[in-house]
């Protein structure tokens, strides 16, 4: 497991060692975050908002 910081509240958040760039996680503060990998290191950024679609 890798400990990262929530870019919104600064709180700690844990992601799997094998987390893929683009993976999404929700912090307990409510922020929805996306895993990014830069220079071999994982970090988090604010994810796109949940989109809307119609139908079933």
């Amino acid at each position: 497991m890798v400990n990262l910081k929530c870019p919104i509240c600064g709180g700690e958040i844990t992601v799997e060692d094998d987390a893929l760039p683009g993976e999404l996680v929700e912090h307990e503060c409510g922020a929805q975050l996306e895993v990014v990998k830069q220079n071999g290191k994982l970090s988090l950024r604010l994810a796109e908002q949940i989109g809307e679609d119609w139908g079933e």
């Binding site: 683009g22 999404l24 929805q32 796109e48 989109g51 809307e52 679609d53 119609w54 139908g55 079933e56």
Partner: peptide, 30 residues
């Protein structure tokens, strides 16, 4: 929750195919 293992595994499955997953909410029911 987007942390639930089914959402996570589907997102990872798409990423492994180089497809960017998008989370959505739908106006209908299923």
């Amino acid at each position: 929750s987007i942390n639930n293992p089914v959402v996570k595994s589907l997102a990872r499955a798409l990423l492994k195919q180089n497809i960017k997953p998008r989370l959505v909410k739908k106006a209908g029911t299923s």
